[in-house]
Design a protein around this nucleic acid. Sequence first.
DNA 1: ACTTGTCATGTTATTTCATATCATGTATTG
DNA 2: CAATACATGATATGAAATAACATGACAAGT
Lengths: 170, 170
Amino acid sequence: MTSDARPASVEDTAPVGFQEHDHQTCVETALTSVEAQCSAEGLRLTPVRRKVLEMLLQEHRALGAYAILDQLRAEGFGSQPPVAYRALEFLVQNGFVHKIERLNAFVACSHPGQSHSPAFMICRKCDAVAEAQSSPAKGALGAAARAAGFEIERTVVEAEGLCPDCTEKA
Amino acid sequence: MTSDARPASVEDTAPVGFQEHDHQTCVETALTSVEAQCSAEGLRLTPVRRKVLEMLLQEHRALGAYAILDQLRAEGFGSQPPVAYRALEFLVQNGFVHKIERLNAFVACSHPGQSHSPAFMICRKCDAVAEAQSSPAKGALGAAARAAGFEIERTVVEAEGLCPDCTEKA
DNA sequence: ACTTGTCATGTTATTTCATATCATGTATTG
DNA sequence: CAATACATGATATGAAATAACATGACAAGT
Ligand SMILES: [Zn+2]
Ligand SMILES: [Zn+2]
Ligand SMILES: [Zn+2]
Ligand SMILES: [Zn+2]
């Protein structure tokens, strides 16, 4: 993501995932950031959890729990659903991974560390997922919530469509 | 779960925007509007489909496919999952019902007829669901999508939190 | 009337996603 | 070196969704 230093304007809003980038660095940076946060907060990034995070960082795509489980099994970890779901629960709770409700699947966070409320762009053709920021409570939804007296605690924002690559091909 | 000993009060029939309203009229109006649209567009609002829509209009809450199926069975319709899923597919495709991805459940549209991109407020305590409008493509997400060259076709916006009633009680 | 095509319904079986529960192991920490 | 909390492993089950196939209703077209 942060391949070169540029003015903040586009970089803040531009999602990782649809663009060419130094992915190796991208993975390493994220992993380092998560490790730092874990050691700072006394969270235990155990081998299973770390492995799941690595798998998700490797792809910029959402993976289902059972796809993850298959890989865990192949690497010699436990092979039953709770193994995957527990690791994912830990990663999601701490904001290192997000669940894509639309797909019942999981994706690594592109902005680890920064507290944020994510929005996703999901390509319906190639399943690529990019993460952006959202502030849904600011727009019409926020107004409706205030009008109704509803207290927003968390929002799910998922856009479905075509990524640049798939748009070109069509 | 569905039958608490609470006196049947406004709370039981409450939330279209989490507000008191004449629910009988509310249901009838929606039904009429859907009927009109179906006959205008040559859509077939068959008995199963109509029954499912009525069920969902009755509650201003999201119902799972199997809860719906249970009621269908009780009314003498088919009793297997595809019966419910097919009716729901029809209703969703035509915008009479929305799926709440967060809950894997379905809710009747509060603005039938009007073409709209809905946003939902979901109470985590009482499961009430209110529908509002959203224009997520206008805000930060739209900017990110343009920056990335992503073509948004559809968006899911779901806010989780506490409805007015549940906020008061807490 | 009868064939043909389309759409809706019904049923069986299977796949996919998710959790409850109990047993076992491994860190901390007092 | 307990006692405790947390993490993992395995079994079993529950819940959500779809594939595949068969039957029925109905509206043209012949
Ligand atoms: Zn990358
Ligand atoms: Zn994130
Ligand atoms: Zn109502
Ligand atoms: Zn609606």
